[in-house]
């Protein structure tokens, strides 16, 4: 599902496109379950979240592990493997990477 917020002009400067899968209240807030982020070659995980914060929602800069926040994130899964912020902020990204933002678990 394409995200309605993605800026079309950014696609022409694409070096690395990362698909970010969001769930729960982030998905509801943004109206999409998939976000596309276009980054320059050599971009890392920290830059990805800066990009998401700039172009989608400033909450992406915080990544609160907190169910109270509408942008709560409990775990990050990059290409099937667990990563964490800020520990892995300098992890280099590649075109086609898939990142899942796993929300806090509020139910049984």
């Amino acid at each position: 599902m394409p995200c309605p917020y993605r800026h079309p002009e950014r696609a022409s400067r694409r070096d690395v496109r990362v698909t970010v899968h969001v769930y729960d209240r982030i998905r509801d807030a943004l109206g999409a379950g998939r976000l596309a982020a276009d980054l320059p070659d050599g971009a890392d995980l920290g830059m990805l979240f800066a990009e998401l914060a700039t172009h989608y929602d400033p909450h992406f800069a915080e990544l609160p592990n907190d169910e109270e926040s509408p942008f709560g994130v409990n775990a990050l899964v990059l290409n099937g493997r667990r990563v964490s912020m800020p520990r892995d902020a300098s992890l280099r990204l590649a075109d086609g990477d898939q990142l899942h933002l796993i929300p806090p678990i509020g139910g049984g």
Partner: peptide
């Protein structure tokens, strides 16, 4: 709401 995200997150 979290059947899928729980599957993908572990």
């Amino acid at each position: 709401n979290h059947t899928a995200s729980s599957a993908f997150g572990g």
